[in-house]
Design a protein around this nucleic acid. Structure first.
Length: 237
DNA sequence: AAGTTAAACAACCGCCATACT
DNA sequence: CAGTATGGCGGTTGTTTAACT
């Protein structure tokens, strides 16, 4: 939804993400992984310099637009046919359909379905081999994962943020503000330092290899799956 | 050129399943 | 075992933009 930027009751921003917010989120996830979406924004150190977004919003933004290897742009004819066929078999299980289309998100497929394919699907009989395979298979859940074995591991779920001593998601949910603030401070240092040098020098080769990032330094420009890196300058928060 | 309509799509909401304490 | 926190999913909404009159 493209709402006007505003703050909700808890002071969190809503609406369209800015390039700055995208940079912050990408930088954080690139470095620490998506270990805990709901805690992530807390490390942004308030609403002025940090990410004043709810974790859910962060996850959605990352999964649908910022994560590596996402395709952008028009769907191919083959993709359309695949979506239609899978929808006949799976129904509105968009995540399952998206799993069959590397680089496409469930949200993207869902939107595409409602705006383009739904009307065509009504008139188009299913005749593809893929459809036959599914209609003849009783265990769709297991099978659809086997058909496409090249779905890349999405992101660094197993990589806890270095400053934390634990990666259990509930152990950090605490009412002990002193403990939390201490941890948050140590992590929020990240937000106040220029991350570019870090990711270029140390973390990125490793993180990039595991997460699908590809960064190239060319004449002072950084080429990345994200357009905004193309004109990125080292920044601090 | 201005107004209207339809299409596209980014993002939020609510619910549910799972993991943890 | 119950309660709570979190992640994930699907439905839906609302703004922007393109196409049309």
């Amino acid at each position: 939804m493209v709402k006007k930027p505003c703050c909700d009751k808890s002071g969190l921003r809503q609406g369209t993400w800015t390039a700055e917010e995208d940079r912050k989120l990408t930088a954080y996830v690139t470095r620490y992984g998506c270990w805990n979406w709901r805690q992530l924004p807390k490390f942004a150190d308030g609403t002025v310099s940090g990410l004043a977004r709810c974790g859910k919003s962060c996850r959605l933004r990352w999964m649908n637009y910022l994560r590596p290897n996402l395709k952008r742009g028009n769907f191919t004819k083959e993709e359309d046919e695949t979506i239609i066929t899978l929808h006949e078999s799976l129904g509105n299980r968009w995540s399952a359909i998206a799993a069959m289309l590397p680089g496409r998100t469930d949200n993207e497929i869902k939107n595409h379905w409602h705006t383009n394919l739904k009307k065509h699907a009504k008139h188009k009989p299913s005749t593809t081999k893929l459809h036959d395979k599914y209609t003849n298979n009783q265990n769709l859940n297991d099978d659809h994962l086997q058909i496409n074995p090249i779905i890349p591991p999405l992101i660094l779920e197993s990589s806890p943020p270095p400053p934390l001593s634990t990666n259990t998601r509930s152990s950090f949910t605490t009412t002990d503000n002193s403990v939390e603030s201490t941890k948050a401070d140590s992590v929020s240092d990240f937000w106040s330092e220029p991350f570019l040098l870090d990711i270029l020098s140390d973390d990125l080769p490793t993180m990039g290899a595991s997460s699908g990032f590809e960064f190239d330094l060319l004449d002072g420009e950084i080429l990345s799956p994200f357009g905004f890196y193309d004109h990125l300058e080292p920044f601090s928060f």
